[in-house]
């Protein structure tokens, strides 16, 4: 469904992504693992178009999207959940969801605020609260819900467990599994191997902007050498 091939991305002169390649199949949950600064977020920003890759290919449903504008990419059915949440602080929960709203796509049950409140009951209890006055966990739920309002077919989820209390991380994992149950395709970025293990089917490990390991989650569990070498666990 999503193919990234030999992607290079620069920030100014710094060469960050150095030939990234990865694939995400339909209804697959793939996790992008790697240490802080490995280039996970940059990969996601390159895919959604927030940073323009210098070369390489990004294909979504077989169509080249590298270099396209973010809103066009998003409208193709690619959802992006940023790592630092970026909820609109002055807007209420309902308004945040409104911003994310896009027309429904054929073949999928469209997301509504009510359906999302079933997924994240906390949000349903604070519909009129400004995003800026929510806890970190609530904001993380809101930012995911906001992206889902666009009825994406594939979601880029950047470190949804980062900085959250263990209970919340637990809830987050449940929510992601529920989304997976709906058939949503997900590319997840994580440093938390435990969290990733609970939700992902397959993994791609990155280091310094390059893929150093790729396989199924079961293979990664078996490959202790890779885990210690690349992930220090």
């Amino acid at each position: 469904m999503l193919q990234v091939e030999a992607l290079n991305t620069h920030y100014g002169r710094a060469h960050i992504l150095q030939g990234m390649s990865l694939q995400v199949g339909s209804s697959e949950v793939r996790v992008l693992l790697g240490r802080n600064g490995a280039g996970k977020s940059t990969t996601m920003k390159s895919i959604i178009g927030l940073v323009r890759p210098t070369s390489g290919h990004i294909r979504f449903d077989g169509q080249e999207i590298a270099g396209e504008e973010p809103h066009r990419i998003a409208r193709r059915g690619l959802g992006y959940v940023p790592e630092d949440r970026r909820v609109f602080a002055d807007l209420t929960v309902m308004e945040n969801l409104e911003v994310g709203k896009q027309p429904a796509r054929g073949g999928m049950r469209p997301w509504t605020a009510e359906r999302l409140f079933e997924l994240f009951p906390n949000l349903g209890r604070m519909r009129d609260r400004p995003g800026g006055r929510m806890s970190g966990g609530e904001q993380q739920m809101l930012t995911i819900a906001r992206t889902l309002m666009g009825n994406p077919r594939l979601v880029l989820l950047d470190e949804p467990s980062e900085g959250l209390a263990p209970v919340i991380v637990e809830q987050m994992a449940k929510a992601i599994l529920a989304l997976k149950g709906e058939g949503l395709t997900i590319l997840l970025a994580e440093q938390n191997l435990h969290f990733a293990g609970g939700v992902a089917d397959s993994a791609t490990v990155v280091e310094k902007g390059r893929v150093v390991w790729s396989g199924t989650m079961a293979e990664l569990r078996a490959d202790e050498a890779a885990r210690t070498q690349y992930l220090a666990v």
């Binding site: 959604i48 927030l50 809103h71 998003a74 609109f88 602080a89 002055d90 308004e95 896009q102 906001r146």
Partner: peptide, 16 residues
């Protein structure tokens, strides 16, 4: 109002 706060994010959500 959302664009006033974070226009990049608004674009990433599919708004032209």
């Amino acid at each position: 109002r959302a664009a006033t706060l974070d226009r990049e994010m608004v674009a990433a959500l599919g708004v032209n």
